[in-house]
Design a protein around this nucleic acid. Structure first.
Length: 423
RNA sequence: GGAGGGAUGGCUGAGUGGUUGAAAGCGGCGGUCUUGAAAACCGUUGUAGGCGCAAGCCUACCGGGGGUUCGAAUCCCUCUCCCUCCGCCA
């Protein structure tokens, strides 16, 4: 969400951002509505001032003057009662439009409407050359008894999974490993709920545009968060933090839920795209300073790269295009790890800087040393998400006999050098 | 699930229809005093929006929303959250 004043004063920049981001927003409607709201508000405030003055006059009035003043107050009240509902409606519509305002993307972002315009900026490691016919991750899981997709579907429907034996333990090891990397980097580990209120989803940016991706609980009483970012971003909602308390650097482990509406037919098999998964998320709330935000962006990205390197996975770095990055983002870089069975890289991490777009929605503010109040900047990135990362780990580290090697860095967490078949 | 009690400014807390955006205390900030500090004393100290070159003025906000009234922190309705007791329970 952009500052209304900024929109008024820089409509051309906003128009450009709408174009670049393909934002579903009618800027002319927003600007016109803004003017109407301002005019009506002025009128109403004028009437309120009159009403207040009149009410005070009633209190002081001599008995013979009262009736006339009360009558005047009644007239003002009637006029207000006529105007106020209109203002409420107009403000509600204005707010809906404001929720659709996009952050202008950074000048380095590739320009284009979709992910086909994303640009690979760097590759790390080489895809492994197999001296045997490698299996895909579903075959590996089935061969070793490391999971049960059929029964998962019976119990929970499509896009669900059951992990078993070593693979189940491997997931736990991975999550704990990722948390330790975050803690080493100075982040505060949190466990947060997955149940979320509607406001938090608006504050995050998931609502209103991504509503169809979210599971609703009890007819809208709550929602299941698709990422801990939703919760982390609402932790300090409405607060004004002292500047000394910034940056807030959090990492959280949480179950994540996604309806995957619209991705029917894509990645329906296995662990690639599931309705419920676990994720360690990185989140930063910092001062409204572009340089600081840029530094954090690099930090978040390098933490994730460090994790992929420790997992000994070949990956590439992708600069996400303006049309693919989402309304709120200033910059987005994805990390994609190699998937041998698909002969391509698939996303494992998504690093984003949103400037004050989320902070305005959730009212995340801080007070500087001069006493002035600012909206903060927010950033986030995946630290590690399972089970998708298991796809890459199983396929890349498989042996000819179907066992799977555990990267050195994970061995202390897993306790063994390889995953062995479940008997 | 049942019964009851609450929600006021950074914090504690007064305030049940009329100059109350809100007493008082604490805290914060500035100053006086002091070699320095403490204490004491004086001043100051919410957010958002609008108007104005500015000084400043206006409006809204006492958990959220709605209502009654000339006038609401105060009365009514509703929702949310918190606390106590009972029941159930990982």
């Amino acid at each position: 969400m952009l500052d209304l004043k900024f929109i008024r004063e820089h409509p051309e920049q906003v128009r450009r951002a709408i174009e670049l981001k393909n934002a579903p927003l009618d800027l002319e409607r927003l600007l016109a509505l803004d003017q109407q709201v301002l005019a009506l508000k002025r009128q109403i405030e004028q009437l309120q001032a009159e009403r207040n003055a009149n009410a005070k006059a009633v209190a002081r009035a001599r008995p013979e003057e009262r009736a006339a003043l009360v009558e005047k107050g009644r007239a003002i009240g009637a006029e207000l009662a006529r105007l106020e509902p209109r203002l409420r409606e107009m403000e509600a519509e204005l707010k809906e439009l404001l929720y659709l305002t996009p952050t202008p993307p950074w000048e380095g972002a590739p320009v284009g409407p979709d992910d086909s315009f994303n640009v690979e900026t760097r590759v790390h490691g080489n895809p492994r050359v197999f001296l045997f016919e490698p299996l895909d991750h579903v075959a590996l899981v089935e061969k070793n008894g490391w999971g049960d997709f059929e029964r998962a579907a019976k119990v929970s429907g499509s896009r669900s999974y059951i992990l078993r034996g070593d693979l189940m333990l491997y997931e736990l090891a991975l999550l704990r490993f990722a948390l330790d990397r975050m803690i080493e980097a100075g982040f505060t580990p949190l466990s947060v709920p997955s149940l979320t209120k509607e406001e938090a989803l608006y504050g995050h940016g998931q609502f209103p545009t991504g509503r169809d991706q979210v599971y609703e609980v009890n007819g809208g009483e709550a929602y299941l968060a698709g990422t801990a970012e939703v919760l982390l971003n609402y932790l300090h909602a409405g607060e004004i933090l002292p500047e000394e308390e910034l940056p807030k650097t959090y990492c959280a482990l949480s179950p994540c839920f996604r309806s995957e509406a619209g991705s029917a037919g894509k990645d329906v098999r296995g662990l690639m795209r599931v309705h419920q998964f676990n994720k360690v998320e990185q989140y930063v709330l910092c001062r409204a300073d572009l340089e600081e935000s840029n530094r954090w962006f690099e930090t978040l990205l390098s933490i994730s790269e460090g994790i992929l390197q420790a997992l000994e996975l070949p990956y590439r770095v992708v600069e996400v295009s303006t049309g693919d990055m989402g309304l709120g983002k200033y910059r987005q870089v994805d990390l994609e790890a190699w998937v041998p069975s698909q002969n391509r890289y698939r996303e494992t991490h998504s690093c984003s800087a949103l400037l004050d777009w989320q902070a305005r929605r959730a009212s995340l503010r801080y007070r500087d040393e001069r006493g002035r109040v600012h909206h903060a900047y927010t950033l986030n990135n995946t630290a590690l998400a399972t089970p998708r990362i298991l796809v890459m780990l199983l396929e890349n580290h498989q042996n000819e006999d179907g066992t799977v090697n555990v990267p050195k860095a994970l061995q202390p967490y897993f306790g063994k050098e390889r995953l062995e078949p479940n008997r």
